[in-house]
C-alpha cells in the first residue's frame, strides 16, 4: 500500500472534517470581512472594518465578555464543589445508592430551555412560588429585576442544571481510583479529612482538570438560560458575549459584524482556556 492508497482511505474523513469544521470557520472569517446585513446582503470586502469597530467602538461587547467570565468561573467553581461533594457521598456504600445516583443526574437530563421557563415561573416576582414563600417573612426579593439578584438567579439555574455533569465525571473518576493508596492511608491511621486532602484529591486532579475545562467551555457559551430568564436584563446586567452576538447576528441581522464578534470570541476563548488548563495543571498536578 503506497501513499496514494492511504490518502484514498483518509479522504472521506478528511472531507467530512473540512465540511463540518474547517469550512464554517473559513466562511465565518470571510463573512467577518464583509458588511452583510439586512439591507446589503452579500460577501463584499470591507477589510478589517468590523474588527476595528469591535476593538475601538464596542464597549458593550467587552462588558458582556467580563460578565461572562465572572458568571462562568463562578458557576463552574460551584458546580465543581457541589458535584464533588455529591460524588463523594454516593461513592461510598450508602443506602439507596443507585437511587441517589440517578436522582442527582435528573437535572442534566431535562431540556435546558424548558427548565429555564419553569425556573422563570418559580422566580416570577409577583406570581411565583419562591416569593410566595419569602413573603411569609415580609420580603419579596427581586430575583429577575435587581442587577445583582438577576446574576445570582442565572447562577442558581446554571448550577442546578449542570452540576450533575460534574458529578457524573467525578464519580466515574472516583470509581476508577486504585484501592492501594487508600489501604495504605487506612493502615497509617489517616483521618477521613487527611485521606481526602492527601489521597483522594491529588488522585482526582487530572479528572478534575478535565471536568473543569469541559464545563468552562460549555459555560462560556451560556445563552439559553439568559435568553429565557432575563433577556440579558435588567439593563445589560446579565448580558453575556454569546447573547450579545445572538442579538447582533439574528436580531439585528448584522451578519458580517456578528461573524467578527464570533471569530474574535473564539480566539479569546482558545487562548484563555489554554492558559487556564496550564495553570490548573501547574496548581493541582505539579504541586502534588
Amino acid at each position: 500500500m503506497n501513499f496514494r492508497h492511504k490518502f484514498v482511505f483518509l479522504l472521506p474523513g478528511l472531507l467530512i472534517l473540512i465540511g463540518i469544521l474547517i469550512f464554517p470557520i473559513v466562511f465565518t472569517v470571510r463573512l467577518s470581512l464583509s458588511s452583510w446585513d439586512s439591507f446589503f446582503p452579500g460577501l463584499d470586502f470591507i477589510g478589517l472594518d468590523n474588527y476595528i469597530r469591535l476593538f475601538t467602538d464596542d464597549k458593550r461587547f467587552w462588558e458582556s465578555f467580563f460578565r461572562l467570565s465572572f458568571l462562568s468561573v463562578t458557576t463552574v467553581l460551584l458546580q465543581y464543589i457541589i458535584g464533588f461533594s455529591l460524588a463523594l457521598i454516593v461513592w461510598k456504600d450508602i443506602i439507596f445508592q443507585r437511587f441517589f445516583r440517578v436522582l442527582f443526574l435528573i437535572p442534566m437530563m431535562t431540556t435546558p430551555v424548558i427548565m429555564t421557563v419553569i425556573w422563570r415561573t418559580f422566580f416570577h416576582e409577583s406570581l411565583g412560588p419562591v416569593n410566595d414563600f419569602f413573603s411569609l417573612f415580609g420580603v419579596t426579593p427581586l430575583w429577575l429585576s435587581d442587577e445583582t439578584l438577576a446574576k445570582v438567579t442565572v447562577i442558581i439555574v446554571e448550577v442546578w442544571q449542570w452540576t450533575p455533569f460534574m458529578f457524573l465525571l467525578l464519580l466515574a473518576g472516583l470509581l476508577s481510583l486504585p484501592k492501594e493508596p487508600f489501604l495504605a492511608a487506612a493502615i497509617d491511621g489517616a483521618s477521613p479529612i487527611r485521606k481526602f486532602i492527601y489521597v483522594t484529591f491529588p488522585l482526582m486532579a487530572p479528572i478534575s482538570i478535565g471536568a473543569i475545562i469541559i464545563r468552562l467551555i460549555e459555560a462560556s457559551k451560556i445563552m439559553d438560560t439568559v435568553y429565557v430568564l432575563t433577556s440579558g436584563g435588567p439593563g445589560t446586567a446579565t448580558e453575556t458575549s454569546s447573547f450579545y452576538i445572538f442579538i447582533k447576528g439574528l436580531r439585528e441581522f448584522q451578519m458580517g459584524y456578528s461573524a467578527a464578534l464570533s471569530f474574535t470570541y473564539l480566539i479569546i476563548m482558545i487562548i484563555s482556556l489554554t492558559i487556564i488548563a496550564k495553570l490548573l495543571v501547574k496548581l493541582l498536578i505539579n504541586n502534588n
Partner: peptide, 21 residues
C-alpha cells in the same frame, strides 16, 4: 432599512435607564 438595529438600540438604552444604570 435595518429597523431592528434602531429599535434594539432603544431597548438597550431605555432598559439601562429603567434598571438605574
Amino acid at each position: 432599512p435595518g429597523v431592528f438595529q434602531f429599535t434594539s438600540a432603544v431597548a438597550t438604552g431605555t432598559s439601562k435607564a429603567l434598571a438605574g444604570q
